[in-house]
Design a protein around this nucleic acid. Structure first.
Lengths: 161, 161
DNA sequence: TTATTATGGATACTATAGGTCCATATTAAT
DNA sequence: ATTAATATGGACCTATAGTATCCATAATAA
């Protein structure tokens, strides 16, 4: 299991856009040369990001891309979910198997607090818990937080001299 | 990005083995019928688990599988790493791109505390942090913890009656 | 009007997941 | 020792997703 290269490209592209904020739009040429990816492939990815409202795009001369909202409102989770999709990280394949049903039977504890019909297998339960933790972390980290960190490094560098 | 079905099968199989602990070995027939997976495919998975020392296997009449160590010493992380591999969840694809090098330059702060040559891109850094969180969670949850939870549910059920 | 740029469709290649089948080796029971 | 049961590993197949390219089209600014 791995994140796709597209996610890598998307994240790096957004950091680049965030960095060039006050300038005009950034064209696919500049982006692709900065990231070292082909224009054709990267444009597919940018298109996805646009469809999901992460970036804006204008065609024509001097066109290009820009962030659709402030960089501190674009979380890693947002980006990942656009590129990788919003499916669960883990799903039990055969919910009708003996083993699954055994682990999914709602005990008394569950029946009191949770809505009926949930019927979550105990293996799923652990995995979904893991996913929630992951999501929380990824939501707390934004494009802006990368920019901040980069700036911090840079200014330390200057102080040394 | 999703966990593979094999991971699902492996986890459910191990829970089954943990549950049948005091009995003898559990054959692939019983396992596959309990999980609703073909014997041929499941045996591949069990073979992997054996190679990594998660289960023991004995061939021959009345042979089968059993846990190689106590269920509380088999974490979800152990199982997942056997099945999914131990590669990083995220890797920057072109470490030579302008964008990557910009985010990888080690500032003064980094140079003091960390070993040189690490040169971790700031995007990678966030993603690796996410992975570590995920791993920690998955390491804290074991096959035994699923068995415990199942037992809890069951005993509550009994009390009700 | 023209040059530039993004968009979307079609296509192709590759790797991996998911799955089957069979020959072989190992073991317990007879 | 023989036999039946069981796990193992190799070969093979298929479907799908990821990666990538190319081209025709639409939209925009100069």
């Amino acid at each position: 299991m791995q994140f796709s290269k597209s996610t890598d490209y998307a994240l790096h592209a957004l950091v680049h856009l965030g960095h060039s904020e006050r300038c005009n739009n950034v064209g696919i040429k500049e982006l692709s040369s900065a990231l070292g990816v082909s224009e054709s492939y990267l444009s597919k990815i940018m298109s996805k990001l646009r469809q999901d409202g992460i970036v804006r795009a204008v065609p024509g001369v001097n066109g290009g891309y820009e962030l659709a909202r402030p960089a501190d409102q674009i979380s890693f989770l947002d980006v990942i979910q656009v590129i990788e999709g919003r499916q669960q990280l883990f799903e039990c394949s055969n919910s009708s198997s003996r083993q699954h049903r055994l682990l999914a039977e709602e005990g008394a504890a569950g029946r009191d607090q949770k809505r009926p019909g949930k019927n979550e297998c105990l293996v799923e339960k652990v995995m979904n818990g893991a996913e929630q933790h992951l999501h929380q972390y990824l939501q707390e980290h934004t494009i802006q937080s990368v920019l901040d960190e980069a700036f911090k490094r840079c200014s330390h560098e200057v102080n040394k001299k």
